[in-house]
Design a protein around this nucleic acid. Structure first.
Lengths: 167, 167
DNA sequence: TCAAACTTTCAAAAAATATTGAAACATAGA
DNA sequence: TCTATGTTTCAATATTTTTTGAAAGTTTGA
C-alpha cells in the first residue's frame, strides 16, 4: 500500500465510521484529512481533495470547530483562512468525550430524572417504569462522572485508567 | 406527570436518543417499551402501542435480538411469540459494549493497523499519516482492551471502576 | 466608497434511510 | 393434507438527512 492508497483508505474508512456514530460523512472525512495533513489546508484544498462543494465544506468545518477539534488559522499577508485539526489524539478524545457528555448524556439524565420521579401508584407497570428509569439514571450519572473525571485527567489517562482497572 | 405521560416521554426520548447514536427510532422505541414493560409483549402489542407496521416491528425485533438485548418467549399453549428485554441495565450495557466492540472497534483497529504499516518514505506527509494512524491505533487498542476487561467483569463493575478511578 | 477576494447562507435537489403492506413463508393441529 | 394463525421478506413509498450552488454577506485595502 503506497501513500495515496493509505490516505484514501484512511479517509474513506473514517467517513463511514463516522456515519455509524451519527456523524456525517463529509464532516468525518474533513476531519480525517486535516488530522493527517502536516500543514493547514484552505477551503479550496479541502473541496478539491474530497470533491465536495463549497457550502458543504463551510458548514461542516463550522461544526468541527463547534466540537472544538478543528481550528482556523491565518497566514500572514493572506486573506484566505486555513484549517488544522487537533493533532494530539488523547486531547481529541477528551474533547469529544466532553462534547458528547454535554450534548447527549446531560439531556438524557434530565429526562430520566423527571420520568423516574413520577408518583408511585402501586401498580406493577408504574413500579417497573420507576425501577428501570432509576437504574438507567444511576448508570448515566456514573458514566457522566466517569467521563468528566477522565476529561480532567492528565494526558496519559487512558493508559493509567487501564492499568488501574487491570490490576 | 402521570404514568402515561412518563411512559410516552421515556419512549420518545429513548427513540430520539437512539438516532443520535446511529440506532433507528423504531428499534430504540421498541427496546424502551420492552424495558419498562413488566410482562412480555406480542408483536401486536408493540405495533399497537408504537403505531408502527408489522414489517417494521418484525425487522427491528430481529435486530434487537441480534444485539442480544431482546429475547423471544413462548407462552404455553399459544402460537404467538412474546418478547422481553434484558432487564438488568448493567448486563444491557455490557452486551451493548460487547457488540460495539465487535462491530465498530475491531474493524477500525484492522484498518488503522494496515494504514499505519505503509512504508516510511521520508516525506512529511507520510510521516504524519503514520504517526497519526499509529496513535489512533494505540488508542483504539487500549479502548478495546478496556471494554473487554469491563465485559468480563462482575455486575458492579461500573461502580467499582468509578471508585478505582476516583481514588 | 468601490472592487476584489473570500465565506456563509439557504432553498432546491439528490441521496440515504426507514417504513409500509401485501405476498410468501412456516408450522401446529384437525 | 388443509386450514388457521402466526411471522418474514422485500419492492415500493415516504421521510429524513445531506449536498449543492448561486446569491447574499463580509472584510480588506486602494
Amino acid at each position: 500500500m503506497n501513500y495515496d492508497e493509505a490516505k484514501n483508505k484512511f479517509i474513506s474508512t473514517w467517513g463511514s465510521l463516522g456515519t455509524l456514530w451519527g456523524i456525517n460523512k463529509a464532516m468525518a472525512q474533513i476531519h480525517a484529512l486535516l488530522l493527517i495533513s502536516p500543514k493547514p489546508l484552505s477551503m479550496e484544498d479541502i473541496m478539491e481533495q474530497l470533491q465536495i462543494s463549497r457550502g458543504n465544506t463551510s458548514m461542516n468545518l463550522r461544526q468541527l470547530m463547534d466540537w472544538g477539534i478543528v481550528f482556523k488559522e491565518n497566514k500572514m499577508g493572506e486573506r484566505k483562512e486555513y484549517f488544522t485539526s487537533e493533532k494530539d489524539v488523547q486531547e481529541l478524545a477528551r474533547q469529544i468525550a466532553k462534547e458528547r457528555s454535554r450534548r447527549e448524556l446531560q439531556p438524557t439524565i434530565k429526562i430520566l430524572k423527571d420520568v423516574s420521579n413520577i408518583d408511585e401508584d402501586g401498580t406493577a407497570k408504574t413500579k417497573e417504569l420507576i425501577k428501570q428509569t432509576k437504574a438507567l439514571h444511576e448508570m448515566a450519572d456514573t458514566l457522566d462522572i466517569l467521563m468528566n473525571r477522565v476529561i480532567g485527567q492528565d494526558h496519559n489517562w487512558i493508559t493509567k485508567a487501564l492499568v488501574k482497572l487491570i490490576k
